[in-house]
Simulated assay, not measured.
Amino acid sequence: MKPRGVFVAVCGLLCALFLGGCGGEGALESAGATPAAVGPVRLWPELPPATDPPFDYGESDTSRVPGLKISGDDVRSVDAVAVVRAEVRARPGVYSGPDGMYEETARAIAACGSAPAGCPVMRPYYRDLTGNGRDELIVGIRMPEQQVGIRVYLAENGGLTRIMSTVDQVVSVELAGRDLIMRVASAGIPGYEYRTAWSWDEQQHSMLPTRDEIVRVRPSAGAVPRLVGPTPTGVPSPVETAP
């Protein structure tokens, strides 16, 4: 047999072996037709884009805490109650916005030294949320009507900058990596809750609500706000260190 004939015969044998093995045990099988990919479709393309936001919710508002000096930009060197007190003293009578405080809450904060059992400032937590290699201070404040104020402070330039402040009816607060995730009760949709992930934004120099979702959950009576871990992402829980 000529060399070319040998080559053709070998190729034919190999093809027969491969084709014959396709139906064997453990061989690849077709999963059927692949559905065609469908891209996003823009509705009302003639609608002009909005140029101005309808309302400012103050998500990126930051504030320097007056009258506090931080040694070595270490947030653990300050007392969480002293931080909140300094803000209340600087803005008395403010009941709305990022500095908003109920009058009874402000009075209880002022009396934390003499009546610690009734102090609404909860134990602080520490976590590097900005990625600068240093911990930030996370403070929770109990308020009337089952509301909780959550504030985050960044130590910089020898002082404190508040980089997050929000108040809501909190189910729980969690830390996942460098995100702070708030679970909030939904008053208008029974059996559901809002979950918002707050993340550091370098451009705004503040924590922003970067992900927001409505999630169906089982109703739980008497839920107590808490800061817990591990989170669903598997990130270990923060070290619970007292101030």
Rank of each mutant, 00 (worst) to 15 (best):
P54S: 07
R211G: 07
V81D: 02
F55M: 11
G140Q: 02
V10W: 10
P48K: 04
V167A: 02
R127L: 03
G100L: 08
F55E: 11
A9N: 08
L47M: 15
G58Y: 06
P49S: 11
L154T: 02
R89A: 15
G100F: 06
V81S: 03
R42Y: 12
D99H: 13
K2N: 14
S77W: 08
I141S: 02
C15K: 09
Q203C: 08
V81A: 09
R183I: 07
L137I: 09
V83A: 03
Y192M: 15
A80P: 00
L14T: 07
E174N: 04
R123C: 04
D135Q: 12
A111S: 15
K2V: 10
Q146R: 15
A115D: 15
P219H: 09
S220G: 07
L227R: 00
G32C: 09
A221N: 09
P98E: 04
C119W: 02
P238Q: 00
A221L: 14
R142H: 07
V173D: 03
I150T: 03
Y102I: 03
V217R: 05
G158Y: 01
G32Q: 06
D99R: 10
I181R: 00
L47T: 12
T210I: 11
G177R: 00
S96R: 13
R134E: 08
V78N: 00
M122I: 07
R42T: 12
R89G: 07
F7N: 12
G100S: 15
G26V: 12
V215K: 01
V65R: 01
E25Q: 11
P53S: 11
